[in-house]
């Protein structure tokens, strides 16, 4: 049997713009994945602990407040501490081009800005999921 991809869609930080997170969650469901959604205002600790319990293959972080440099990196740092580096982490939101190299270096494998086709996110996950 083909293993189902499990994804955690999380909204770190304080912004309440969940339009993108919800669209991506639904699209991943429609692509046959199991999607756990955390809701708003999650700390990095909450996200990582949820990822552990749900044993997800992918974490999708959505943030539109501009706090991505701090909060996305909090998540990848905690994952390293938990020996969960094999979880694919992707991020989306209003993210300036110049921030992307640093985010990738910190372990955010894919960064998706406004205007991304959902299909591209689905494909990226299918191609890059590590387990």
């Amino acid at each position: 049997m083909k293993r189902k991809i499990r994804v955690l869609i999380a909204k770190p930080g304080l912004d309440g713009h969940d339009r993108g997170a919800k669209i991506v969650a639904r699209a991943l469901r429609d692509a046959g994945m199991e999607v756990v959604y955390t809701g708003l205002h999650q700390t990095a600790e909450m996200i990582v602990k949820t990822a552990v319990q749900e044993d997800v293959d992918v974490i999708g972080l959505s943030l539109l407040s501009g706090a991505h440099m701090t909060l996305f990196m909090d998540v990848t740092r905690l994952l390293k501490g938990k020996d969960m580096e094999d979880v694919l982490v992707v991020g989306g939101g209003v993210i300036p081009e110049e921030d992307i190299p640093a985010l990738k270096k910190a372990g955010i494998a894919g960064v998706f800005g406004p205007g991304t086709r959902i299909e591209d996110i689905v494909e990226f996950i299918r191609k890059n999921v590590k387990r």
Binding site: A31, E34, K49, E54
Partner: peptide
């Protein structure tokens, strides 16, 4: 699709830590 949206956790996030 065989996929699922698992949203019950949203209400339980107070126990996330």
């Amino acid at each position: 699709s065989g996929g699922a949206l698992l949203g019950d956790r949203i209400r339980m996030m107070e126990f996330a830590t």
